[in-house]
């Protein structure tokens, strides 16, 4: 199993990668969503796609308690999250979980999220998931080093 980078600095091969990263990283620039929530959903996506790179990155930047961060993987049975956080985690999980018999994000899930978030907050949450969605293939294909700085992560 590969844990060393397969590709050297992607932005060197495709300079627009840096521009895209900067653009997608601005989706929550106004701070519409609390940083804690953004970290929770980012961490959950990293777990769902099996990326140590993402989970280490989210944990390294997290400003939350070890109890809550550790409980993200089993959030459904955890008492540590608010109803809004649970709705956001449910939405996150639905996007990344195959559903052979219907749509991934059901009306019920969306309606539950809409009880806790405004339209604008929902769009930012969706944008945050998209932000990670953009980086997933780079991480899973390129296999950057885990737990080092952005400058070092692509050094073979």
């Amino acid at each position: 199993m590969s844990t060393s980078p397969r590709i050297e600095n992607p932005a060197q091969h495709l300079p627009v990668v840096g521009e895209i990263a900067a653009a997608v990283n601005r989706v929550n620039e106004e701070g519409v969503l609390p940083k804690e929530l953004v970290t929770l959903v980012g961490l959950r996506v990293g777990q769902l796609v099996g990326s140590s790179y993402f989970t280490a990155r989210q944990l390294g930047e997290a400003e939350d308690t070890p109890e809550r961060l550790g409980a993200v993987a089993t959030w459904r049975t955890s008492p540590y999250f608010t109803e809004a956080e649970r709705a956001a985690l449910a939405l996150t999980e639905a996007v990344h979980t195959p559903n052979p018999t219907g749509e991934r994000v059901s009306d019920e899930l969306f309606d539950e999220a809409a009880k806790h978030f405004s339209d604008k907050e929902l769009v930012v949450l969706t944008g945050v998931l998209g932000q990670i969605g953009y980086f997933i293939p780079l991480a899973l294909i390129g296999s950057p080093k885990v737990g080092v700085s952005f400058a070092e992560q692509w050094q073979k």
């Binding site: 627009v16 639905a94 994000v105 998209g130 980086f135 294909i141």
Partner: peptide, 21 residues
């Protein structure tokens, strides 16, 4: 390969907009 990752990532960005929105 980096372009391909970006082709996939482009849709990775739009997937939540499509399946949630």
């Amino acid at each position: 390969l980096v372009t391909l990752a970006t082709v996939i990532g482009q849709i990775g960005f739009f997937v939540p907009l499509a399946v949630i929105g």
